[in-house]
């Protein structure tokens, strides 16, 4: 039964669900597992919204309910103002499943052409957009090879391209960087940020905390099918009582003096250290350096 009836719906609400519950049943219709329980959320236009949770939390179930691949036991969903089973609204949605389930006998160009036809794109638009997307995902050299000869990462790139072939308003990405190498992960993250810059709305489902932290404006966290928390990433991660100060070119003596001053003002020095860069940043820097050499 829906409990959160105060979820606002306005013109900028791209995705809305209220009291969403999903029970999977056996062949006799008896419920076997409750995958989602009384889940409500709304996603605003132009934001990157994160669905966070461990494996089995109900993230993929939520996405499938949004797309109409499965149907809710209770609750309501509205996607771009329409029911998930509405065919017309799918014209403006892009979806990247957690595994790219594509026709393996087609090559990248043919796959994009097929999905472009399903979106009824004119031929010129299909051809131009396919070429741009293939180049964007770095598959120009392999566009004529059948997908069965692709690596997992390459298939994923094709999946990403098909997700964007219709220039969608709302993009649903289910574990987009799962199983990807750091380079591809970075590229996908940059692409997602680029999509937001274009004014598109992204719903991102992931159990990789770093990705969610890097990308999302707001997140909701699921655990065992129930919502645990929701809010802006910046607000959720802020540790209110700790202030971080970053200073360059500071000698050890000056650092000691700053510690003493903090103690004098009643502060408790938790930690002082030289800043560490992220491993991803280091990795990318090394790769770029090697690339520039070649």
């Amino acid at each position: 039964m829906p409990t959160e009836t105060t979820i606002p719906i306005d013109a900028d609400t791209v995705l809305w669900c209220s009291g969403l519950t999903k029970d999977f049943t056996d062949i006799w219709g008896r419920p076997t597992v409750r995958s989602l329980e009384d889940f409500s959320m709304s996603v605003q236009r132009g934001e990157i919204f994160g669905l966070l949770g461990p494996n089995g939390a109900g993230k993929t179930t939520t996405i499938k309910l949004i797309l109409g691949l499965i149907f809710p036991t209770a609750g309501q969903v509205r996607v771009l103002g329409a029911d998930p089973r509405d065919v017309e609204s799918k014209q403006r949605i892009g979806y990247l499943p957690e595994e790219s389930y594509l026709h393996r006998f087609l090559n990248a160009e043919e796959t994009l052409d097929l999905y472009g036809r399903l979106f009824d794109l004119p031929k010129e638009v299909r051809v131009e957009r396919s070429a741009k997307l293939i180049e964007r995902v770095g598959l120009k050299h392999a566009r004529k090879r059948p997908l069965k000869e692709y690596s997992k990462g390459m298939v994923r790139r094709v999946g990403l391209a098909t997700c964007l072939i219709n220039d969608p308003e709302l993009i649903l990405l289910d574990e987009p960087t799962s199983g990807m190498d750091p380079i591809l992960s970075r590229e996908i993250k940059d692409l997602i940020l680029d999509l937001r810059a274009q004014g598109k709305t992204v719903l991102l489902s992931s159990h990789l905390l770093g990705d969610v932290e890097d990308l999302c404006d707001r997140v909701v966290m699921l655990y065992r099918g129930r919502k645990q928390l929701e809010g802006k990433v910046s607000d959720l991660l802020e540790v209110g009582e700790v202030t971080e100060v970053s200073v360059k070119n500071l000698s050890d003596t000056a650092a000691q003096a700053i510690r003493a001053e903090a103690l004098k003002h009643g502060g408790e020095v938790v930690d002082t250290h030289r800043r560490r860069e992220r491993l991803e940043t280091l990795f990318m820097r090394v790769v770029e350096r090697e690339r520039s050499k070649n």
């Binding site: 499938k64 691949l69 017309e88 979806y95 790219s100 389930y101 999905y115 399903l118 009824d120």
Partner: peptide, 14 residues
């Protein structure tokens, strides 16, 4: 069974 329908079935065709 292979879940290709997950991709296929989310396109704007009944």
């Amino acid at each position: 069974e292979s879940r290709v329908m997950h991709t296929f079935g989310t396109k704007p065709i009944p």
